[in-house]
């Protein structure tokens, strides 16, 4: 299929470009981010080595569904706003 071949080609080129850009970006900026992450991890390890901590409370039944709530809200809010704006624009355009 010609389209599929072209699609694969576009994706391969885009991935190569993205990879090259990411490699270029992986310099000073990456060092700063790494240093911050390292400091955070060390602080967490120091906390874990400290005195006994009580066990966290049991997770509720919807534990496996709850993580989806945030991303779905992040997706739904802009989507609904866009759909609403689109409806208003189309309605205004169709008005005589």
């Amino acid at each position: 299929m010609r389209s599929l071949r072209r699609g694969f080609l576009v994706l391969a080129v885009a991935m190569a470009v993205a990879f090259a850009l990411l490699q270029v970006g992986d310099t000073q900026m990456a060092e700063g981010v790494r240093a911050r992450i390292r400091a955070r991890n060390e602080a967490r390890q120091r906390y874990n080595r400290g005195p006994f901590k009580p066990r966290p409370p049991q997770r509720p039944v919807d534990h496996y569904l709850r993580p989806f709530r945030g991303p779905l809200i992040v997706m739904a809010v802009p989507g609904l706003i866009t759909a609403g704006v689109l409806v208003l624009v189309r309605r205004r355009r169709s008005r005589p």
């Binding site: 990411l22 981010v33 790494r34 992450i37 991303p71 997706m75 802009p78 609904l80 866009t82 689109l86």
Partner: peptide
């Protein structure tokens, strides 16, 4: 972990972009 940060930021941005994309084709 640098790539983890890049991945996290780009994925979060992508979720919002997909939301608008879905809204456009609702």
């Amino acid at each position: 972990f640098f790539w983890a940060v890049v991945h996290s930021v780009s994925a979060t941005v992508l979720i919002a972009l997909v939301g608008v994309h879905l809204g456009m084709h609702f």
